[in-house]
Design a protein around this nucleic acid. Structure first.
Length: 489
RNA sequence: GGCCCCUUGGUCAAGUGGUUAAGACACCGCCCUUUCACGGCGGCGACACGGGUUCGAAUCCCGUAGGGGUCACCA
């Protein structure tokens, strides 16, 4: 065995890539690249009932989108395959047989009902529910009797009594467990398929995984796995359990959490920038030595250290996430921002699927005008709402402005000046405003606010001449006319 | 409940026996800007608590409290 760094991300194909899973994958990836090691994506699909058809494909797609690539997996192959548990059944069988032969594992015939009853009784007595070991020493006759009943056994691992199990963890130090607190656990189900706890050990060993980097929810599985390594006489890999990512309620995120966007695919659909998402989740539970917060993938790779992974759980802060995404958005090329945002305008029926050159140009300018306010492409719909409605609402703040005495005069003059200009480009609009200033004598806020509010209904918004230009001659004129008429009556 | 992990401002976090306890987000104020945002400057705000050890503890030890994870024929 070499001392090459080999790490893996081993998800089960049960759904979309989750924030937590993405972070585990990312930490593994960063560590592998930092150490010039290999990064493996292995699919743990031993629970047939929970597997989802297209999940593996989607998982890999999400990883790719994030900018994470791998050296060995189901699609790329590799020297340590197959990379999917269900394709490794023959391999597991050999090791199960070995344990059985050595008396380190045994068949257990208890039914779910019997087990549940046992647990109930233990709870009633105030004990920790744990498998009693009832079938540990069955005679051949007893086994035959059970078989005759039509019962199919599971295989359980013999947990040695009175042992201290040390999990050597790169982020937590040495964590010790009592073997007495662990019941003989199932390593092969009734259907003959091994459980995760067994499969990972075999897989990690055979694939020469050097470091097991994963979430803290696996920490209590670690002693079981260590026991298996010991039973086979294998050296354990190094463990590193990163703490969990929590929601605002300080709980492990649940699938249907609404306050946090939890799946990588959703970020993609909403037009987020993957660099920003990666940057943000990298900083959840890990921090670089310096003070730089905006880091590219290359910088993350260069600076990543397992030793700097933090032990305390991290709360997912959506506000900071938004800030970070906006930072990247502002720096991005206009073309890219348009590419991220445009589909959302179409989806919201603000723009047709097929656009003329003129429409394209208009949409381009519209999006770029709002670029600095976006955290993701989908934001464009709300930001540009007033460009797509004939009627606009004037809130109380806006009405206060419109109630000022100079307003009719300014708007009247502005409407006239707009009629006089040939072009409706921002520059021309600006000239028209200058002319209004000359004609009416009003300037500054007295001049610009009425116009801004009149055309947009709001006191705040993007650059005024540009906005007016994009709104178009007709809309602007209609809105001003409507106001002036209203004022007369 | 048993076992395990964790505990620096609202949040992310630096900090490994001697610091005025960094920085970022959020919030507040000022400046910039014909608005908002951006940007700049400044401010508010923390070592959960109690015992030790030590000349000296955010840092080491022990308790307490609180939070989290896990106790499956799920991963």
């Amino acid at each position: 065995m070499s001392d090459q760094v080999r790490v893996r991300f081993a998800p089960s194909p049960t759904g979309h890539l989750h924030i937590g899973g993405a972070r585990s994958a990312l930490f593994n990836y960063l560590f592998a690249r930092n150490q010039n090691g290999s990064f493996i994506v292995r699919i743990e699909d031993t629970d047939a009932a929970r597997n989802v058809d297209t999940a593996t494909e989607k998982l890999l797609e999400s990883l790719k989108w994030l900018g994470i690539d791998w050296d060995e997996s189901v699609d790329t192959g590799g020297d340590y395959g197959p990379y999917k548990s269900m394709d490794r059944l023959d391999i597991y069988r050999k090791y199960v047989d070995q344990l059985l032969a050595e008396g380190k594992a045994y068949h257990c015939y208890m039914t779910q009902e019997e087990l549940e009853k046992e647990r109930e009784e233990q709870r009633a007595r105030g004990e920790t529910p744990m498998y009693s070991g009832r079938d540990r020493n069955l005679t051949d006759e007893q086994k035959q009797a059970y078989e005759a009943e039509g019962r199919k056994p599971v295989v359980r691992f013999v947990v040695p009594a009175g042992e201290e199990i040390i999990v050597d963890d790169e982020v937590r130090g040495q964590v010790s467990f009592e073997s007495d607190g662990i019941g003989d656990f199932v390593i092969v189900r009734q259907d003959g398929i091994p459980t995760y706890n067994f499969a990972v050990v075999i897989d990690d060993y055979l694939m020469e995984i050097s470091h097991v980097i994963r979430g803290e929810e696996h920490l209590s599985n670690a002693p079981r796995q260590v026991l298996l390594y010991q039973a086979f006489g294998w050296k354990t890999p190094k463990f590193a359990h990163a703490s969990l990512i929590l929601n605002e309620e300080r709980q492990k995120m649940s699938k249907r959490e609404e306050s946090i966007i939890q799946f990588i695919e959703q970020y993609r659909e909403l037009g987020y920038m993957p660099e920003a998402v990666v940057n943000f989740i990298a900083l959840l539970g890990w921090s670089p030595g310096g003070e730089q917060e905006l880091l590219s993938m290359d910088e993350l790779i260069e600076q990543f250290e397992l030793g700097r992974v933090i032990k305390a759980p991290a709360v997912f802060d959506t506000a900071k996430m938004a800030w970070m995404n906006n930072q990247y958005m502002k720096e991005a090329d206009d073309d890219r921002v348009v590419w991220l945002a445009l589909p959302h305008l179409k989806k919201a029926d603000r723009l047709p699927e097929f656009m003329s050159e003129q429409q394209k140009q208009w949409a381009y300018e519209l999006i770029v005008l709002h670029k600095e306010k976006m955290t993701c492409g989908a934001d464009i719909v709300e930001l540009t709402d007033l460009f797509f409605h004939d009627e606009i609402q004037y809130n109380s703040e806006a009405q206060e402005v419109l109630a000022e005495e100079q307003v009719p005069e300014v708007l009247q003059s502005f409407a006239e000046q707009l009629r006089l200009i040939d072009s409706f480009e921002a520059d021309a609009v600006k000239q028209a405003m200058k002319a209004v200033q000359k004609e009416t004598g009003y300037k500054g806020k007295q001049l610009f606010m009425p116009i801004r509010v009149a055309v947009s209904g709001q006191k705040h918004g993007p650059d005024l001449p540009k906005m007016i230009s994009l709104l178009g001659r007709e809309t602007v004129s209609d809105r001003i006319t409507a106001l002036l008429k209203d004022d007369d009556s």
